[in-house]
Amino acid sequence: MKNNYFIIIIVILFILVADYSFPAGIIADDDYGVRAEFIQGKAVPGDIVTLRLKFKIPPGFKLPENPEIAGLNGFDIVKKRTMTDGIDIDIFVDRMDDLHLTALEIYLYNKKGGQKALKSNPVVLFVKPKIIVKPTENLLRPVKGIISSGYGLKKVLLIVFSAICIILAAIAAYYYFIKYRRNKKSGPAAPVLPPHIKALNRIDSLVLSGIPDRYERRSFCFILSEILREYVKGIRGFNALEMTVDEIANVVKEKDDIKLLGVLKKMDLVKFADNFISASSLEEQVGLSRAYINKTKPEEI
């Protein structure tokens, strides 16, 4: 009987040790040639997160200058950096749901052209949507009892109110007279264009002479960013021209607006960090800008 108890205790200890050694949802590193992990524990839409891939290159093989990594389709890759023991990949978070990366594959080559694939473990990054909490409106407290309501005070208030009304009437008459004379001299005012037509016209004028050379692309990005921010201000009602990308991300809720954050982020990297942007990438950003405007413009009646 004592032997049976001893065996049961040994089995329970083995199960506990196994659970602590390999927690649920974690796969042993030995099953994969690449260990994948996100540097950040969590993110919100608009962030740039880093995916780190660690691995050892087998003898006789080497990693190309532009590594081939399968399994990243559908993700907005900002930059890749090759290190001695792996690769860091910056990814722009353009969605409100979690980033699920299934097993990735990195391809290595030997001198004879032979190919070898290293497989990574699946990895998940939790994305927390930003929720805007409406602040409680401040209420004015009643002033009854603070000011005396006697006849003398009422008479004074009536005189003050009458004087204010006369002054406001004089200002309104003067403003109307000036505006009437100005309109009479200049003729009818030009019609105000809808935000989407104005934005598309400005983009057409911007790219009329083609994509600029490398040294003028920074000013090009300044103008394109201003056009998009002015358009967002026109359709969403908040002043995007005076806000950073992170501040805009705190306000927008539509998926199309969240995707636009990627374009604004890349424009800011060129504007303020003087990052290099190729002509093809700049053409792609112009195309994404036009697509966003056409998708979010008001429906024609």
Rank of each mutant, 00 (worst) to 15 (best):
G74P: 00
G74S: 05
I77T: 03
V78W: 00
V78L: 08
K79P: 02
R81Q: 10
T82R: 13
M83V: 01
M83S: 07
T84F: 14
D85S: 06
D85Y: 08
D85W: 10
D85M: 05
D85I: 03
G86W: 10
D88Y: 03
I89G: 08
I91G: 00
F92N: 06
F92K: 00
V93E: 00
M96K: 13
L99C: 02
L101P: 04
T102W: 09
T102S: 14
A103T: 15
L104D: 05
L104G: 07
L104W: 01
E105S: 13
Y107D: 02
Y107P: 00
Y107T: 12
L108T: 03
K111E: 13
G113F: 06
G113E: 09
G114Q: 08
Q115I: 12
Q115N: 10
L118M: 11
K119A: 03
K119G: 03
S120H: 04
N121Y: 07
P122V: 02
P122Y: 04
V124P: 00
V124R: 02
L125F: 01
L125C: 06
V127F: 05
I132S: 07
I132C: 01
V133W: 03
K134M: 06
P135I: 02
T136H: 08
T136K: 15
T136S: 11
T136A: 15
E137I: 15
E137F: 07
N138R: 13
L139R: 12
R141S: 13
R141K: 14
R141G: 12
P142L: 05
P142Y: 04
V143K: 08
V143Q: 07
K144N: 13
K144H: 10
I146A: 02
I146T: 06
I146L: 13
I147S: 07
I147V: 14
I147Q: 05
S148K: 15
S148A: 13
S148Y: 06
S148T: 15
G150V: 02
Y151P: 03
G152K: 11
G152Q: 10
G152T: 11
L153Y: 09
L153N: 08
K154E: 10
L157W: 14
L157C: 07
L158Y: 09
L158R: 13
V160L: 15
F161V: 09
S162D: 04
S162L: 12
S162F: 08
S162P: 00
A163T: 11
C165V: 15
C165P: 00
C165E: 05
I166G: 01
I166P: 01
I167H: 04
I171H: 02
K179T: 09
Y180T: 11
Y180K: 15
Y180L: 10
R181K: 15
R181M: 10
R182C: 00
R182V: 12
N183M: 12
K184C: 02
S186D: 14
S186G: 01
G187L: 08
A189K: 14
A190G: 12
A190W: 05
A190R: 13
A190M: 08
P191T: 09
P191L: 06
P191Y: 02
P191Q: 09
V192C: 00
V192P: 03
V192L: 05
L193A: 13
P194C: 05
P194I: 06
